[in-house]
Amino acid sequence: MGIGQIGIPGLILIAVVVLVLFGRGKVASLMGEVGKGITAFKKGVNEGKQELEDKTSDSDTAAARDVSPEDKDKV
């Protein structure tokens, strides 16, 4: 019997053991933290995608702009 063959009764037994060992409050707190972590991860991924898109669109327009410094010491 491998891990892939635990089934529903096995999962229920594991859940009951975890509940007994840690208590309902601790398990609820842990699940809340896991949810916050997942939300933060998704937000970070979306912000990273947006940042990459912004840099890509900026590099497209950067070639059209003259950003060379003005040299005032020329004679």
Rank of each mutant, 00 (worst) to 15 (best):
V17G: 06
V67Q: 09
Q50E: 15
G35E: 10
I8G: 04
K49E: 14
I8K: 03
G2W: 14
A28G: 00
M31R: 04
E47Q: 11
K36W: 02
N46F: 07
K36P: 01
G10K: 01
K74T: 10
E47P: 02
E51N: 06
E33G: 03
T39C: 01
D73T: 14
F41Y: 15
S29V: 00
K36N: 11
D71I: 14
I6D: 10
K36Q: 10
I3E: 13
E47I: 00
K74D: 08
I8A: 11
S68V: 00
S57F: 12
E53K: 09
A63K: 13
K26W: 09
G2V: 08
G4C: 05
G44K: 08
D58P: 01
D73C: 02
K43L: 12
D71A: 09
V75R: 08
G44N: 13
D66Q: 08
E70Q: 05
D60C: 01
K26Q: 12
T56I: 07
D73I: 10
G32N: 11
I8C: 04
K26E: 11
I12E: 13
T39E: 11
I12M: 05
G32F: 04
G48N: 14
M1L: 10
S59C: 10
G23M: 00
G25F: 02
M1G: 15
G10N: 04
P69C: 04
S57G: 01
F22A: 00
F22N: 01
A64P: 05
N46I: 05
L13K: 12
G25N: 07
L11Y: 09
R24G: 03
L19S: 05
Q50K: 13
A40H: 05
S68W: 12
I12N: 05
D58S: 06
V27W: 02
A40C: 03
E51I: 06
G2F: 14
G48P: 13
D71F: 15
G48T: 03
A40W: 12
S57V: 04
E33P: 02
E53A: 11
P69F: 08
G35V: 00
I38F: 09
Q5D: 15
L30K: 02
T56F: 11
E53C: 04
M31F: 12
I38D: 02
S68P: 02
I3D: 15
S29R: 03
V45C: 11
E51Q: 06
K26I: 01
F22E: 04
G48Q: 12
V18L: 03
E33D: 12
K43N: 05
L21V: 10
L30Q: 02
V67G: 03
L52A: 14
N46V: 11
K43D: 13
D60L: 13
F22M: 02
